[in-house]
Nucleic acid binder design. Structure first.
Lengths: 350, 350
DNA sequence: CTGTTAGCGCGTTCAT
DNA sequence: ATGAACGCGCTAACAG
């Protein structure tokens, strides 16, 4: 593989001159430019960015660590990140943690070895250990979607608490009193916030007993929690005790719930109402009918990336003046979209 | 950021000794190992893989260039690639071309600059130009899913022709005579092969006129082609001329078709039968009912990666003996899954 | 406008 | 068992 020295030799100039032509940095006479360009062409020269990065101390690579690109929500976030990054000349490495702390840490180590210029992280669990590691390495970091207890950091996330509150209010407004929330894992702030918003609305309505189920943000967990919610009612022996509405706290849980309800022969919304956080993937929307709280996924990715790029500039200009800037927290609004999966409860509350 | 020299200094040894301990290559007394490890810990030292790769001429990175990770089919392929790669100690960079030649070429250039060790490519279009570029740079390449006319290369793909043939035969066996295929872009071998398999079955059945629509592998294109297929019949003024069955040649086209049929009030399978290539994403399968030809997506990714890794070894051991090995073509079988979207035509053929 | 020198951080080669 | 010297390919810093 040809090096810049080969190019320089062929063009009859010094390597640095070739470098200047190739990177259009610094002066070069038109004649020299021609010769260098031709040499590049002739040799099929492709610059070695390893060497370049080693010298220049930047790789033009960002990393996005998330839980699962299989989920269309994250796919959309990823697109937002990629678009914003590539517009600024950066590439993005994607990493799936599957919510596993251990995988997350392995990736972090690898990414820092590769000297990525910045990291966008959807923290798998509430551990702050990983963040300390990143800080120690002086790599700019922006959190995405999830807060971390006791950690001040730049973050872009949505108003999960508020969205959950509104969605619960919507169900209450339709006359539901027994509303069960099917939520994600404790310790994940977006999950906790949605439970909190739900509880606030429930308590405000004077309902003594919230119905909270906690599992994973997966289809199978949504299925199981739904079965549990239905089963608990069956166990009590009184149909009146069955929840009349379910609040699925993400799209995959909603899909699992729909599946479970279908398998149990429970019709939505005739027998039971269903509302969810996050829209379902476009692919399922042959006939959209789920009432949802939608997060601006693309925008989350875009803004987080822009914030990260800002921090890179800060770091570059600040150089060795280690002034501590304050962190930024960007909270994006959640939009409620009413469709047809909610209806007043069929069995009037006694 | 600490370098290996800092570690060496702190441990009171030469840099190379520290290197040997860190990479567990070569000898080192137990006492020295201890000191080095402690220095690493104390300084928070993380090796610089840019420098390491520059020296060792390998990056342990592979690239997967595909058209659209949004499609669950490709997501699954990607998982197969990632699993096989990480098991061998390699990382994967993912790139979306959106079927655009230009994006593909930009990514290729970038990946070669980054000196990835190998490339898995789902070629966007039939151009062979890009492949010549890769060959010239001596980077091992395995094609995925799509052949390239006039190009001999390692490839892992499915039997699209055979699968389409079988699926069409299935429809014919149910008594359908007017079967329309909604296909992908000409020049993309998987699309062309499916049309070919369809045509073979149609001709064998003695049907004079195949009904072929060609568009993109997208939801909107599936929608449009379906409207066109329905509209053509309407235009002819005779319901008898309407297709009684549709063959969607990938999952996104199938979703678009379902949407269009729903919007037009055409019931599946009562009024019209539908079969598709590729299964729908798990997320939509609340109640699976589509009869499909399924490709082993995960396995495609896995085997392609293994083949690529084999080639890396070949290249490493062959060194400068440029023996030309013959290329391998791995063709995976397609499985037909019969469900409930096919039914004999309601309007008997005159 | 162009060239010389040096070094980014690491590991191969050869010496001790 | 350990170390010195060198170079991977490139560009910053400093001439001229």
């Amino acid at each position: 593989m040809a090096t810049i020295r080969d190019v320089a030799k062929l063009a009859g100039v010094a390597p640095i001159t070739a470098s200047r032509v190739i990177n259009t940095s610094g002066y070069a006479s038109e004649e020299v430019r021609q010769r260098v360009r031709q040499a590049v062409e002739q040799l099929g020269y492709v610059p070695n960015s390893l060497a370049r990065s080693l010298r220049s101390h930047q790789t033009l690579m960002l990393a996005l660590i998330l839980t699962d690109v299989t989920n269309p929500f994250w796919t959309t976030v990823a697109r937002g990140v990629e678009d914003a990054a590539s517009q600024a000349g950066f590439n993005v490495i994607f990493c799936n943690t599957d919510e596993a702390q251990e995988k997350q840490d392995r990736y972090l180590e690898m990414l820092i070895q590769k000297r990525v210029d910045g990291i966008l992280l959807v923290p798998a669990r509430s551990h702050a250990q990983s963040i300390r590691f990143i800080r120690q390495q002086n790599v700019p970091l922006v959190l995405l979607d999830r807060r971390l207890l006791g950690i001040d950091a730049d973050i872009v996330r949505c108003d999960s608490e508020g969205g959950a509150y509104q969605l619960t209010r919507l169900l209450l407004g339709r006359g539901h009193r027994r509303i069960a929330i099917l939520s994600g894992p404790p310790g994940v702030s977006s999950a906790d916030d949605r439970v909190a918003g739900y509880c606030r609305a429930i308590l405000e309505a004077g309902i003594p007993q919230p119905l909270i189920y906690r599992g994973e943000f997966t289809i199978s967990s949504g299925y199981q929690m739904t079965c549990a919610a239905l089963g608990a009612a069956a166990g009590s022996g009184r149909a009146v005790n069955a929840p009349s509405a379910l609040f699925a706290s993400n799209n995959f849980i909603a899909i699992g719930a729909l599946k479970a309800l279908h398998d149990s022969g429970v019709a939505v919304p005739d027998a039971l109402s269903l509302a969810a956080f996050d829209d379902l993937p476009a692919a399922t929307m042959i006939e959209p009918f789920l009432t949802v709280a939608v997060q601006p996924a693309y925008e989350m990715g875009r803004q987080a990336t822009q914030l990260l790029l800002t921090r890179l500039n800060d770091a570059a200009s600040a150089a060795n003046t280690s002034v501590h800037r304050s962190f930024q927290e960007i909270i994006l609004p959640v939009a409620i979209i009413e469709r047809r999966s909610i209806r007043p409860p069929q069995i009037p509350v006694v």
